[in-house]
Lab assay of single mutants.
Amino acid sequence: QGDIVVALYPYDGIHPDDLSFKKGEKMKVLEEHGEWWKAKSLLTKKEGFIPSNYVAKLN
């Protein structure tokens, strides 16, 4: 089961498979690959890669 993270900063995706998000948006982490994680937005239901240093895990 994936962790839920919250965006600390907004992110505008650079690549087509990036997931753009707004500050405060919550996402479910699907896979962790070093600095880039695959996640699904709980708001938009879209999936893509996010920079892990832009988010914090919720406990």
Rank of each mutant, 00 (worst) to 15 (best):
Q1R: 13
Q1H: 12
Q1E: 13
Q1A: 13
Q1I: 15
Q1S: 12
Q1W: 13
Q1K: 14
G2L: 10
G2E: 10
G2A: 11
D3A: 14
D3F: 15
D3I: 15
D3V: 15
D3G: 11
I4C: 08
I4P: 02
I4E: 05
I4Y: 08
I4L: 09
I4W: 08
I4S: 03
I4G: 02
V5C: 13
V5D: 00
V5S: 02
V5A: 07
V6F: 08
V6D: 02
V6N: 02
V6T: 06
V6I: 14
V6E: 07
V6S: 04
A7G: 08
A7M: 02
A7C: 04
A7S: 04
A7N: 00
A7P: 01
A7F: 01
A7I: 01
A7W: 00
L8V: 07
L8S: 03
L8Y: 04
L8G: 02
L8F: 04
L8E: 03
Y9K: 12
Y9T: 06
Y9G: 05
P10I: 05
P10M: 08
P10Q: 12
Y11P: 01
Y11A: 01
D12S: 12
D12E: 14
D12K: 14
G13W: 03
G13S: 11
G13T: 05
G13D: 02
G13L: 03
G13V: 04
I14E: 09
I14H: 10
I14C: 13
I14D: 08
I14Y: 09
I14A: 10
H15P: 13
H15T: 09
H15Y: 13
H15K: 11
H15M: 08
H15V: 05
H15A: 10
P16H: 08
P16G: 09
D17R: 14
D17Q: 12
D17S: 12
D17C: 14
D17A: 10
D17F: 11
D17G: 15
D18V: 08
D18A: 11
D18M: 12
D18H: 15
L19R: 01
L19T: 02
L19N: 01
L19W: 02
L19F: 04
S20F: 04
S20M: 05
S20K: 06
S20A: 08
F21N: 00
F21K: 01
F21S: 00
F21R: 00
F21V: 05
F21A: 01
F21Y: 01
K22R: 12
K22M: 10
K22T: 10
K22E: 09
K23V: 11
K23A: 11
K23P: 06
K23R: 10
K23T: 09
G24A: 04
G24P: 00
E25T: 03
E25M: 02
E25P: 00
K26C: 15
K26H: 14
K26N: 07
K26T: 10
M27H: 01
M27E: 01
M27W: 01
K28G: 04
K28A: 10
K28Q: 15
K28V: 15
V29T: 03
V29I: 15
V29M: 06
V29W: 01
L30Q: 05
L30D: 03
L30M: 08
E31C: 13
E31V: 08
E31W: 10
E31R: 07
E32S: 13
E32P: 08
E32M: 15
E32I: 15
E32C: 14
E32A: 14
E32D: 15
E32K: 15
H33L: 11
H33N: 12
H33G: 10
H33V: 10
H33S: 10
G34P: 05
G34N: 07
E35L: 14
E35C: 15
E35K: 13
E35W: 14
E35D: 13
E35Q: 13
W36F: 10
W36R: 15
W36C: 10
W36M: 10
W37G: 03
K38R: 13
K38T: 07
K38M: 13
A39N: 01
A39I: 06
A39G: 05
K40I: 14
K40S: 09
K40Q: 14
K40T: 08
K40P: 01
K40Y: 12
S41M: 04
S41H: 10
S41A: 04
L42F: 07
L42E: 06
L42W: 03
L42A: 03
L42K: 03
L42H: 04
L43Q: 09
L43T: 11
L43H: 10
L43N: 07
T44N: 06
T44F: 02
T44L: 02
T44R: 03
T44P: 00
K45F: 15
K45L: 15
K45D: 14
K45C: 15
K45T: 10
K45G: 15
K45Q: 14
K45Y: 14
K46W: 05
K46N: 09
K46P: 01
K46G: 06
K46R: 12
K46D: 08
K46Q: 10
K46I: 07
E47F: 06
E47W: 05
E47V: 15
E47Q: 10
E47L: 07
E47S: 11
E47I: 14
G48A: 01
G48D: 00
G48T: 00
G48Q: 00
F49A: 05
F49Q: 07
F49P: 00
I50K: 00
I50N: 01
I50M: 03
I50T: 00
P51N: 07
P51C: 06
S52R: 13
S52A: 14
S52N: 08
S52C: 12
S52H: 09
N53W: 15
N53G: 11
N53H: 13
N53D: 11
Y54S: 06
Y54W: 06
Y54H: 10
Y54V: 05
Y54C: 09
V55P: 02
V55K: 01
A56W: 08
A56G: 08
A56M: 14
A56L: 11
A56C: 15
A56V: 15
K57N: 08
K57F: 14
K57Y: 14
K57S: 09
K57W: 13
K57A: 09
L58Q: 07
L58D: 09
L58W: 12
L58V: 13
L58G: 06
L58A: 08
N59I: 13
N59G: 14
N59Q: 11
N59T: 11
N59M: 11
N59C: 15
N59R: 10
N59A: 12
N59L: 11
